[in-house]
Amino acid sequence: MLEIENLTKRFDAVTAVAGLTLSVRQGEVLGFLGPNGAGKTTTMKMVTGFLTPDSGSVRVCGHDIGSDTLRAQAKIGYLPEGAPAYGEMTPREFLAFIAGARGLHGDAARAARDSAVAHTGLDGVMDRPIETLSKGFRRRVGLAQAILHDPDVLILDEPTDGLDPNQKHAVRELIRSIAARKTIVISTHMLEEVEAMCSRAVIINRGRLVADGTPAALAARAPGGRLDDLFRALTSTEEAAA
C-alpha cells in the first residue's frame, strides 16, 4: 500500500503539488484525476523516487521513498508518462534488461517475462526494435515492464493514452484481473475510464486534493449526476477564482 503525507513540490515560483495527503490500500484501484498541470505527473514522479519532494513523505509498503529508496522502488511498477523505453532494443532485450535490473535471473526472469508478455499481448512483436512499433504496442511494452516483477504497487501515468478502443479494453481487463492483490494508481483524463475500472477516485487541482470518493459517490455530488460535471465544477471554478 501507499501512504502520501503532506507532499509538496515547487518549481521556481510555481507550486506543482501543495501538501497532498493520500493513502491507498491494497485492492484499491485509484483514479487520479485532474486537469493538465494539476500536479498528477509530478506526484507520480515523487512517489516513484524520480523527483525529490521539497517536503512531505511517501511510504511504499512501509518503506520511505526518501530514506529507503531501493526497497521502496523494488515494490513499485511504474509506467512513466509517454511510456519511454530504449528505442533501439527489442521488447525481448528490453524486458531482459528490466528483469536483470530488478534482480530476476534465469528461470525466474523467463517466467516473469512470459507472464508479462501474455498479459500485454506482445508475443508477435518481441523481436522488433521498440522504435519501429506502433504507439499502442509501445505503451504495452511500458506496461509489460511495469508488471514484470509482479509489484505490490502499480503507478500508471495515462496507461491508455493513444490506444484504440480494443487496446483500451485489453488494458482495463488487465488491470481488473490483477487489482485484488495490488495497490494501483492510474492517472487519466478519461472520466469514463474511471467509472469503468476504478474503485475510488480523487480529483486534484493546483496540487491540492479537491474530491475523494467512489466514482459513483462523486458523480452523485454533481447536480446532473455525472462525474464530468463535478470535475468541471471543481477544477474550473478554482481557476476562475485565482
Binding site: 522502488q73 512513466p80 519511454p84 523505453a85 528490466i98 530488478r102
Partner: peptide
C-alpha cells in the same frame, strides 16, 4: 531527451 532516464532512475538501482 527520450525520457528513458525516468525509467532508469525509478528502477531499484543505486
Amino acid at each position: 531527451r527520450s525520457g528513458s532516464i525516468e525509467l532508469l532512475l525509478t528502477l531499484p538501482l543505486p
